[in-house]
């Protein structure tokens, strides 16, 4: 079931016309409601937006991040493959609180080849 978030009209299935917007009001945002999730039917767009949990994220995009490895907790690691491949030094970010560890041996290491 799809519900137009602008006018609230419900549709059983997406039709070709709906790709250009709601046939009733032209709205472009639809909510998909799974079977048995009728509770969502009457939610308004604002309520839904409030419900979306945005993952905690850093200020920088992956390209701007300086760390090649981020340790988010014991046994949880985030690897920046681009930085690992392009830079020889290892910079580790600790959690997401702006602490960094620079691995000096990797900076001073001679290239193997």
């Amino acid at each position: 079931m799809h519900k137009c978030l602008k006018c609230g009209k419900k549709f059983e299935r997406i039709t070709r016309e709906m790709l250009n917007g709601c046939p009733e009001c032209g709205g472009r945002l639809f909510l998909y409601i799974r079977e048995g999730e009728g509770g969502e039917m009457d939610a308004t767009a604002t309520e839904l937006v409030d419900r979306i949990k945005i993952e905690e994220r850093g200020d920088m995009s992956p390209d701007e991040r300086i760390e090649s490895l981020r340790i988010l907790g014991t046994g949880i690691y985030e690897l920046n493959l681009g930085a690992l491949m392009e830079k020889k030094e290892l910079i580790m970010g600790i959690k997401q609180d702006g602490s960094y560890v620079i691995h000096l041996p990797s900076l001073f290491a001679k290239k193997r080849r």
Binding site: L69, G75, I76, Y77, L79, L81, L84, M85, K111, R112
Partner: peptide
């Protein structure tokens, strides 16, 4: 295993030089 896997990824990438 997670720690070893992370070390493994870094080792694999360093190998690209060779």
């Amino acid at each position: 295993r997670a720690k070893e896997a992370t070390e493994g990824v870094i080792e694999a990438i360093k190998w690209l030089d060779d």
